[in-house]
Amino acid sequence: MNSSTIMIIDDEPQMRKLIRMFLEKEGYSVIEATDGVHALSLLDETPPQLLIVDVMMPFMDGFTFAKEIKRTSTIPLIFLSAKGEEWDKIQGLKLGGDDYIVKPFLPGELLARVESVLRRSYQNKPIPDTLKVGPLVIDTSAHTAILNEIPLSLTVKEFGILHLLAKNKGRVYSREQLLHIVWGEEHQSSERTVDTHIKTLRLKMGTDGELIETVWGIGYKFGV
């Protein structure tokens, strides 16, 4: 499973949903922002390893966002736009964009460009693999989870669930989504298996097990 987190910044809900589906299918964690202003407010919470930024947005467009973020950050950035004119592409690259994708695009093209930018950007340094959310610290390279400075003894699936929910805190995942992402598309498990793993995970987390919240009729989320 990919350890990279990608932020999608686009004011079109359907476009965000589509890109999220492509990326999560490949194991990436995804954060959504509706515009540049919203994205800036989220960056300090869970810094992503890549930004996918729509050019045409209200409040703060993609080019303005790029100017702002590149002053203080080296996070790689892919522009996404329905405008495919050469001037727009050149402008995006001059502003620090690592790539420029024209809508509409094929899933394979998007994923190939995402992988290419991540590879180029982090080939000489490791992608950050430590996540801190409240009292929880997860190290994906060491495959460890520490809660209130106490290591948790987790199975592979429990670790996968905790990592996914913590990286996307506040987002609700259905049982079916958890099965597809953590167990894989070829899984033969039932949704009840997810409930069993969640129950065991909460027990191991002690009083902090309540951080994994049940959203009745839908699924689970990390509630910090």
Rank of each mutant, 00 (worst) to 15 (best):
L18V: 14
S190P: 08
S73T: 11
T74A: 14
T5L: 07
D35S: 11
L154V: 09
G134Q: 01
E115S: 06
L152R: 02
K25W: 04
K132C: 13
G134D: 03
G134Y: 03
K94D: 10
Y122L: 04
L203F: 12
I101Y: 03
S190M: 13
V194F: 10
W183G: 01
E191A: 15
K132P: 05
L51K: 03
I75Q: 08
F59M: 12
Q14V: 11
G27R: 04
S116H: 06
S116D: 05
G92F: 03
H180L: 11
R192E: 13
P58M: 15
G184S: 14
E185F: 04
K67C: 14
K83P: 07
A142E: 08
G27I: 05
G219L: 07
L152Q: 02
T155V: 10
H143F: 05
D129Q: 10
V133H: 04
L106A: 07
I75L: 12
I90L: 08
E210P: 00
L18I: 14
L178C: 09
R202D: 05
D44L: 12
D10G: 11
Q177K: 11
E191H: 15
M15V: 15
A142S: 08
G84W: 08
D195A: 15
E186N: 13
E210Q: 02
E149G: 00
A66Q: 07
G84F: 08
G217A: 03
F22M: 13
M56S: 12
I69H: 01
G97D: 03
P58E: 15
T196C: 09
R119C: 06
R16T: 13
I31Y: 01
K94N: 13
N124M: 10
K83L: 15
S3F: 05
V215M: 08
I138T: 03
E26K: 14
D195N: 15
